[in-house]
Structures are given as C-alpha cells and as structure tokens.
Write a protein that binds this DNA or RNA. Structure first.
Length: 682
RNA sequence: GGCAAUGUAGCUCAGCUGGUUAGAGCGCAGCAUUCAUAAUGCUGAUGUCGCUGGUUCAAGUCCAGCCAUUGCUACCA
C-alpha cells in the first residue's frame, strides 16, 4: 500500500492564556490520530502554532509592562512545555507572529484584492477617546438595558442572557480606560464572502464535513452571507495591511494562515515541499481538527480565501464538542477549569489521554470528564486489566527461565484472534471512533485475563517452575500483552515505550500486530502505570480553586453589593436626569405581521419648538396583554431619548414603560389624564 | 421566542435502515482464586429506554405535542 501524504493541524491556542483541559481534549484527539497514521507508515505531518495577534494580547502585554513580543514568547514556551508533557507530538509548533505568516498573509490578501474579493467602506464603531482605540464589544461594559445588572459586556448580559449592541448599554464605559466611548467612523476592509456562496454550498456538501456541521452551515448558506470585516485600526498587534497604513489584519484572518506558515517553517529545515501540500493539484491530504465554536472560520471564510488565493481546500474539517467536567461547563470557582500545568502537578498525563480516548467519538457532542468515573475507569482498564497481564506473567518467565520466552505459543488461537482485530480497531481509530476502538481493545484484554485464569500458571509453577508448558503459557500471555500495547500505543505512547523496554523490543509499529515474540529475552518487569488516587484528583481541584481565589481577590474591583430591597445600586441625580421620560399618547396601535409578541405603536409626543408635531414609532412586546384597539387614545410614558433600535420589522424609536411579570400580566403605565403629550416627567 | 443536538441500569455510554425475553464497561452482591500494583475469573440483581398521545401485526427505534439540559439565534427597546 502506498504511503499517504497527510498534513494535520489543530486549532491554534491563543497566546493570552494557559493551556487548559479543553485545549487538551483537542490536542489529544488530534495526536492520537496522527500517531496512528505514523505507526501505520503514512507520511503524516502535525503542525500547530500559537495564535499571537489581537487586541487582547496587546492589552495584556501593556498591563504587564512588557512588549507583546515578550509576552507571546513567554506564553509560547509555556504552551509548548505543556503540550510536550501531555505527549502531543507536533512536528512543528510555530507562531502566527512570524515572517512566514506575514508573507503568506500579505500575498493571500493581495490575491483576494486583485480578484475583486475585498470591499472597502466606512463603518461606525465605539471608540475610547482616552486610549484612542476602537473597542470590540467585550471591551465595553455597562448596565444591562434589560435587567439592569451592572458590569455587563457590550454584546450580551450574563445575568439575563439578553443580547444587544454595545451602544444600548446604560452608562457604557471602556473597560480599558474607564472613559465613556464615543462613536467614530473608520474605513474597514471586508472579504466578500457572498461571492463564494455557490462554491461553499458545494464544498460543504462534498463529504468534507460531518453531517451535523454541514447542516448547521446550510442555515447560513441559505440565508444572506455577510461580508467579513478583516481589518482593524491601529493600535493593533498584528500585521499591517499592505498599502493601507494604520490598518491591520484582523487576528482571525492570519490565524488559519498560521497553519500554512507553520508548515512552511518546517519545510525550510526538512525535505517537505510547501507546494506539494498546498497547491490545487496537491495529492496530499489536509485535515483540520477544531472545536465546534470556530466552525464558521474554518468552513466558510477559510476555504473561500484559499480558493480565491489559488490554494487547495482542506480534505476535511473535523469538529469536536466542548469538554465539561462533572456534567457542567468548566468553572473556575468550582475548580473544574483546570489548567494543563495544574493537572500535571498532580496527575499523570496518560490518565487523561486514556480516559478521553475511551469516550471520544467522531461527532460534535460535548464530552464529560466525570472525575470519579475517570479514576475508576483508568484504574480498572489500564492497571487492572492491561498492565496486570504482563505483571502476572513476567515473574514466572524471569524466575523460571531467566527472562527467556518459549519458542512456541501455548494458545496460538488466542493470539491469532487478537491479531485479527487489527482491521476493525484500525478502522475505528481512523474514523475517530476512539471509544469503539478502546472498547474492542479492552474486550481483548478480558480474553487474555480469562486465558490466564483458565491455565492457572501458578499451579504449574508450584511443582515445576521450569516447566515448558508454564513457559509457553506465559509467553502466550506476554504476546497478548504486546498486542494490546501495540493497539494502545497511539493513546499511550509513554506507557508503550516503557512496555517496549520491558519486552526488550524495537518501537512497535502497526505491522508488529502480524508477528509474535518468541525465543526472546525480556527485561525485568517494573510497574508500567500506577493507579489514579482520588485524593490527588481532589488536590488538583482544590489547587484550581485556590488559583482562582488568588486571582480574583487580586483583581477584584468594587462589585456593587445588592441589598435586601433588590433595588439597583444608588446613582447620582445626574444619571437619572439623562433619562428623558415623556408623556405620550397612543395615536395608533396595530399587530405586526409575523411578530408573536410585538405591537407597533405610533405615539404623539407633543410638538417641537417650531410647533411641528413629534411622532414616534415604537415596537413593544405587549401583544400578549393588550388588544391594540383598546390602546388607541391612551396616555403612557416613553423613554424619549433612547437610541433607536433596528428590529426585524423596523426601527423602534423609544421604549414605553410597563410593569408586571409578563404574559397576560403586563400593565402599561398611565399618567394622570390632565397631563399632555410631550410633558417631561421629572 | 425560534432552530438544532441530547435525554437508555447508581456512573459513563452502545443500540444500523422499527421485529424474538433492551446491551457493554465501571460500580454493587455472592462465589472462586491468590500468579499479579487488594489486581483476575465466574454468577447475579438493578431499567414504565425523559413524559403524553399517535402510526403499525410489531416502537428505545417512525410521527406529533410537552418537559429538561446544552449550543446557536432572535421580535426581550
């Protein structure tokens, strides 16, 4: 069989934080697959890099009083160290902040532009006037306009889950300088994704994606695709856009190009040829392993960019779900947001590799790390079943035969049946059905233990410790062990290496499954793996909690304290006076076609200085409580200076006030009949 | 609110295009064994297959509604 040429990537970790269990799940999934390919004799290259650009990194560096370059250098070292200790076998780990990536990003951008796939237009964004910096949503905090929880980010509220645009926040602040942001225009560059709709519709349905992913994407592809904003204004840590001083590539533009850059960097010191893997005529396979949160970047923007720029598209993109711990989202306060380093301080990396392998499938479902199950499963399978087979045979061989194996098996059928599983197990690994592969392997381990039980070598050893039969039985047991190690090697490379030393053999390749180990001297047996101790697991959780407490007490800002009234935190009169409440009269009220909850109200707000009447259109979610006909002519209260909000059915130019729990029970505020439309409420 | 995924033994999960008494591993109980890192083997118990209806000779498996969890998304101004 001809060796396949394969290039594999996993998502680039962001250079602004430590590697945690979530990163590791992806790294382990990818690494197992790559190790399998290599064991089977395929030419498989595994590259990765740190994702080193963006505002977050720029600000982090500033906070620490170092340059971004210094920051990312330090983080990169830590990342590589963490991955290395988890036995992630990259062929290259590079950085997106590299010359290779700059050249590739520039040339790809220039190709996109030349092909008419770059649009330019001015957009308006919130801007920090003190810091002189455009603000992404997450750098703006303020009070949630819905539930009034303070300290919420610019895009959604953590307390009530509502989403909004940053300009809707009450009392918005730049979380960088504390200044009140202003709106400012700037020219941005856009990648014209809609031009690739047809190409993407075909590509996403061509077997390159998991069904669930393709289905999800078709929602976007059937809808209007948006142009993708790929530029950011200075100051920004990244690459300046050629011919556009002060404009930088958005971090997500050059991040996937980092896959190419890392590979190019590898090519420079090996015989690999960049074009062999990236030209449209390439016969190499290209796979991206990613999390389901970044599917759109890898399955829409990325293939479209590659196509425009004259490169090949990925053979497949494999998305996985999120990792949960004990059934819930990883949480810092619960101590389940465990960093790689904290794990390594307490537990052996291969425990995690094995447990995740035992549960990983090809889908995008989330995977739960149940800590108790983790300990029980690893102990039972690895120590109790697999390693135990060697442990219970080795002593007899060492004592009775000076470590020499027999030249013949006692039970050739057992070994043959274990060998014949290679087709199925290999398939499962190849298809990322690791849990099924592991299940099969453990069934084989059960057979081996049954065999030893049936043969009772200890009984023979008592009367004849040098009996040839005893030697053949233990030789059979150790051959079974050797096959199991071979199957598990992609998952447990370090344990496999120890086993190879014990068996006194060359590093096992997949075709070792077709041979037997006979008439051969083995080394002294030493424990290959010790049990997971639950108190170590607990210590890891405790340490994570402690890290969190230290960090949060160090950073802790004054959090508004809620009192028994449940009222909002006290505000200055000034803050109140900025809210312009007016009496309004309902001129018209009607149902909105297609809306479940909204009524469209036309309101009279009196007249302006020139005597011209002021009318406002407001959409209000009170359909469940009011028949529009009964509203006409009523007086109510409107927030008159609320920024107009674009809604699905039109602009809503204000907000009317009501109270009640919802549903039928919503009551509109109604001022005294003597008031007039337009009167200010103070 | 909409859309999607998930919901099967105490735990983690498998159950393909509907078809005999619903499975595995772990855990649990009993027995056996003592070579082995108290590891192994045998036997066994445990499930209204989220809930309610429907289609069918037959449903965990198909359909509808509902509930819960998660994710995405929104007409919560």
């Amino acid at each position: 069989m001809k060796a396949r040429k394969i290039l594999v990537t996993m998502a680039l970790p962001y250079a602004n934080g430590a590697i945690h269990l979530g990163h590791l799940m992806e790294a382990i999934q990818t690494d197992i697959w790559v190790r399998l390919q290599k064991m089977r004799g395929n030419d498989c290259v595994y590259v990765c890099a740190d994702d080193a650009h963006g505002t977050a990194i720029m600000l982090s560096a500033e906070k620490q009083g170092i340059s971004p370059e210094q920051l990312i250098d330090g983080v990169k070292r830590a990342h590589q160290q963490d991955y290395a200790e988890f036995l992630i076998g990259f062929d290259n780990f590079h950085s997106t902040h590299s010359e290779e990536n700059r050249e590739l990003s520039e040339s790809i951008y220039l190709a996109l532009d030349k092909n008419g796939h770059i649009a330019r237009r001015a957009i308006s964004q919130l801007f920090d006037p003190e810091k002189e910096l455009f603000l992404a949503d997450r750098y703006i905090t303020g009070t949630c306009p819905k539930c009034k929880t303070p300290g919420q980010y610019g895009d959604n509220c953590e307390a009530c889950g509502s989403t909004y645009s940053p300009s809707d926040l009450i009392d918005p602040r730049s979380s960088i300088s504390g200044a009140t942001p202003i709106e400012k225009e700037s020219e941005h560059f856009f990648f014209d994704l809609p031009q690739f709709r047809t190409m993407l519709q075909q590509w996403t349905r061509s077997g390159t994606l998991q069904d669930a992913v393709a289905n999800k994407l078709s929602e976007w592809l059937d809808d209007d695709l948006q142009q993708w904003d790929i530029s950011r204004d200075a100051p920004y840590f990244g690459f300046e856009i050629p011919g556009a001083p002060g404009k930088y590539f958005y971090v997500w533009l050059d991040a996937p190009i980092g896959y190419m850059a890392s590979f190019k960097n590898l090519c420079a010191r090996t015989d690999y040829k960049f074009e062999d893997y990236w030209s449209p005529e390439s016969d190499a396979e290209l796979y991206h392993f990613i999390g389901k949160d970044i599917i759109n970047f890898h399955t829409l923007f990325w293939p479209a960019m590659l196509t425009s720029a004259g490169y090949r598209t990925p053979t497949a993109v494999y998305a996985h779900g999120f990792l949960t711990v004990d059934g819930t989202k990883m949480s810092k306060s619960r101590g389940t947001f465990v960093n790689a380093r904290t794990y390594l301080d307490h537990l052996h990396p291969e425990y995690l590799r094995y447990y995740l392998a035992a549960k990983l499938g090809p889908g995008i479902d989330d995977l739960d790390l149940n800590l108790e199950d983790f300990a029980l499963r690893v102990n039972s399978d690895l120590v109790g079943k697999v390693v135990n087979i060697a442990s219970r045979c080795a002593g007899f061989i060492t004592k009775g035969f000076s470590g020499r194996l027999a030249n013949k098996l006692d039970d050739a059928n057992l070994i043959a049946s274990m060998q014949s599983a290679q087709q199925e197990i290999g398939q499962y690994f190849e298809q990322r059905e690791y849990s099924k592969a592991i299940r099969n392997i453990m069934a084989l381990a059960d057979h081996a233990n049954q065999y030893i039980n049936d043969k009772q070598p200890w009984v023979i050893a008592k009367s004849a410790p040098d009996s040839p039969e005893l030697q053949r039985i233990c030789t059979t047991g150790l051959n079974a062990f050797r096959l199991l190690i071979c199957y598990l090697k992609p998952v447990l490379p370090a344990m496999a290496a120890k086993a190879e030393a014990f068996l006194n053999v060359e590093p096992l390749q997949w075709d070792a499954l077709n041979s037997q180990l006979l008439d051969h001297t083995i080394a002294q047996f030493t424990p290959l793996m010790t049990r997971v101790e639950m108190d170590k697991v607990q210590a890891m959780i405790d340490a994570t909690k402690q890290e969190f407490n230290q960090n949060s007490s160090a950073v802790s800002t004054t959090v508004a304290v809620e009192d028994a009234t449940g009222f909002e935190p006290e505000i200055e009169f000034d803050a109140f006076s900025r809210v312009d409440l007016r009496v309004a009269k309902v001129l018209a009220a009607e149902h909105v076609e297609g809306a479940d909850k909204l009524l469209q109200l036309t309101l009279d707000l009196g007249s302006d200085k020139n005597g011209k009447p002021i009318q406002r259109t407001v959409f209000s979610g009170i359909k469940s409580a009011y028949d529009p006909a009964t509203l006409v002519g009523r007086l109510t209260v409107i927030v008159a200076n609320l920024k107009p909000r674009k809604m699905k059915f039109g602009m809503s130019e204000g907000m009317i006030l009501a109270a009640g729990p919802g549903g039928k029970e919503i009551w509109l505020l109604e001022p005294d009949a003597n008031t007039q439309p337009g009167m200010r409420i103070t």
